[in-house]
């Protein structure tokens, strides 16, 4: 039931944010956020119920992973809304949330039985942190795209609906920085705990594992971006570009490894 309710809330949040952008009624903004919070509450309730009844988290299945990713995106949206008060972000995040939650639905929903290989303390640290880190990277990439779109509007002097509803460039830049740094630290914890889990599970760290190689490449790219920003400084436009480059490596890690390398 909670699963279906969270789907409904994500769809309604998407509907209301779209109406808000195109119709401009302020009341729709609060309704959107109510649905976003409810969506997060229902999907969290789904996880809590699963833990209470079966003492497991659904990370052993594709559906469980996608469900958690959609939940993480909703969480990041709420956090960023509290900090920056920008509803436009929802216009990009909610379609992804709906997409991931629908993938989870069509991939079989919540698994009935526990996968013994997908349980354990370090895995329960590794996967949530990696997924939440990925969600932050996704939102920073969304910020990057928004930056380029808004920057084009300002350069070309287009004063349409996008120009009016998108946040100022400076706010987008701050949002990118926040999500980039939090994503990097969260992803780092996820990567380290993944290494520990691999060591416990296999007795050794297999450095030739394609997943590990790509994850380390992703980490190196993001650490390069964050350290360069810290030490040398980066213009907002370059930061926006770097988030897109960084996210391509995340996509290669997930999609590339899953479909091409693993066969």
């Amino acid at each position: 039931m909670f699963f279906d309710l969270s789907i409904l809330c994500a769809v309604l949040a998407l509907l209301h944010v779209t109406l808000f952008i195109f119709m401009g009624y302020q009341r729709l903004a609060s309704i959107t956020n109510i649905f976003a919070v409810l969506g997060l509450v229902f999907s969290s309730a789904q996880f809590i119920t699963l833990w209470q009844t079966k003492h497991m988290l659904p990370f052993g299945s594709v559906s469980g992973l996608f469900l958690f990713l959609s939940q993480a995106l909703m969480l990041v949206y709420i956090m960023m809304y509290i900090k920056y008060r920008r509803l436009t972000l929802g216009l990009f995040i909610f379609p992804l949330t709906v997409l991931f939650i629908m993938i989870a639905r069509f991939a079989g929903g919540i698994p009935a039985n526990i996968n013994p290989h997908a349980a354990g303390f370090w895995l329960y640290i590794h996967l949530p942190f990696t997924i939440i880190g990925t969600a932050f990277f996704m939102v920073s990439t969304i910020g990057g795209i928004m930056y380029f779109v808004q920057e084009r509007q300002l350069k070309n002097k287009n004063f349409g609906i996008i120009f009016r509803t998108f946040p100022p460039l400076d706010t987008i830049d701050k949002l990118i920085n926040t999500t980039l740094y939090i994503g990097f630290y969260t992803f780092t914890i996820g990567l380290l705990s993944g290494l520990i889990w691999m060591m416990y599970a296999n007795g050794v760290i297999n450095i030739y594992s394609p997943k590990l190689v790509f994850a380390i490449i992703t980490w190196i790219i993001y650490s390069g971006i964050t350290f360069y920003k810290q030490i040398k400084g980066m213009s907002p436009k370059d930061t926006a570009l770097s988030t897109i480059v960084g996210f391509i490596s995340v996509l290669i890690t997930y999609v590339g490894v899953a479909f091409f390398v693993m066969g």
């Binding site: 300002l154 120009f163 009016r164 946040p167 100022p168 460039l169 400076d170 706010t171 701050k174």
Partner: peptide, 20 residues
């Protein structure tokens, strides 16, 4: 919202770039 005087529109545009 959306200023309709030239000087105010200029300042409003500045906030579209710099925020605060």
């Amino acid at each position: 919202e959306n200023p309709v005087s030239v000087s105010y529109a200029a300042v409003e545009l500045a906030t579209k770039i710099f925020g605060s």
